[in-house]
């Protein structure tokens, strides 16, 4: 599918020399949302070449940047088309654009509009003033829910390997027959892993504000502990022999590590994490996850000999 729009100058409605100039990325969703939000009004839309990437990401990469803006502006001949010298940029393009540098380079002043295109009409009606709400990025449940497939579907690729592997390994070495052990030990292991997947890729994004801890790995570990305990409870309650204890706690460690890892990956999709923060989190979380999963694997294997 093609998500790009050709860069350049577009007319929305019937704009004239005094009409406002809105700047956006050449990602189709950005462009379409801007058009529909501003529908019924006249404006010029200057579409930058951001390689089909949305405003926020393109600004972070610098493709929605000062150079692209000033270059595209000159190429479009905008200075002959409008009589004023003002541009309205989405606020989230600011990591890539230096307003004072644009002014210096081409004489156009930059005003940062609201974060959401949906607030643009109100912003204009208020005399180009944004309320604090328009300026602040939040991460509500609906936005987190939309991102769940972005975590869940790539994880399925790994699960397609892990689940059959643990199912078959569950049939090896325990006291019963291969087939019998698969339906008990193997199935339990598979359910534990599935619990970890759901905890890290679904529950963590949805329950983000309510899970304890600030680090995503901690939130994921708590969610994984909950799903793991539910699976253990459903598969026969409290483990009574040393062998079952080792088996259950081993798989619990593995599924908690899996959940924490998947949760940590959600830092990329979330919009309030900093690079320094993610680095600090990973410094302690990554070794802990590897140690936990290794210990879990050792316990799960040792359970066969207890």
């Amino acid at each position: 599918m093609n998500y790009t729009v050709d860069p350049g100058l577009y007319a929305l409605g019937a704009p004239d020399k005094q009409s406002p100039v809105l700047v956006t990325a050449n990602f189709k969703l950005s462009f379409d949302r801007l058009r529909s939000a501003f529908g019924g009004r006249n404006a010029w839309i200057l579409v930058l070449d951001t390689k089909g990437i949305n405003v926020w990401c393109a600004a972070g990469k610098g493709t929605f940047g000062t150079d692209e803006l000033t270059g595209r502006l000159k190429a479009s001949g905008l200075e002959k088309i409008v009589s004023h010298r003002h541009l309205i940029l989405p606020q989230l393009s600011a990591p890539g654009v230096a307003a004072h540098a644009v002014k210096r380079a081409c004489g156009f002043s930059v005003a940062y509009g609201p974060i959401r295109a949906g607030d643009l009409s109100e912003f204009m009606d208020r005399g180009m003033k944004a309320t604090p709400e328009m300026r602040t990025k939040r991460f509500p449940l609906a936005e987190r829910a939309v991102l769940v497939p972005m975590e869940f579907i790539p994880a399925l690729k790994w699960m397609a390997v892990l689940l059959p592997l643990f199912l078959v390994l569950g049939g090896v070495g325990f006291s019963g027959t291969f087939r019998g052990d698969i339906t008990t030990h193997g199935i339990q292991a598979a359910f534990m892993l599935t619990g970890g997947l759901l905890a890290g890729a679904v529950l963590t994004p949805l329950l983000l504000p309510w899970l304890p801890g600030r680090a995503f790995a901690a939130k994921g570990a708590v969610a994984g502990l909950i799903t793991g305990c539910i699976v253990i409870f459903l598969s026969g309650g409290a483990p009574d022999t040393a062998a079952i204890q080792a088996e259950s706690s081993g798989m619990l460690l593995i599924s908690v590590a899996l959940a924490a890892y998947l949760a940590m990956n959600f830092t990329g999709a979330s919009d309030y994490t900093s690079l320094s923060g993610v680095r600090r989190e990973m410094q302690w979380a990554a070794p802990l996850l590897i140690a936990g999963a290794t210990l879990g694997l050792i316990l799960w294997t040792a359970a066969r000999f207890l």
Partner: peptide, 21 residues
């Protein structure tokens, strides 16, 4: 190459390239 998937307009879209989170 990691990019967030939250669009500037407050909505989300699958815009990430290969190797992206």
């Amino acid at each position: 190459e990691c990019c967030c998937v939250v669009d500037a307009n407050g909505k989300t879209g699958p815009v990430c390239g290969p190797g992206c989170c």
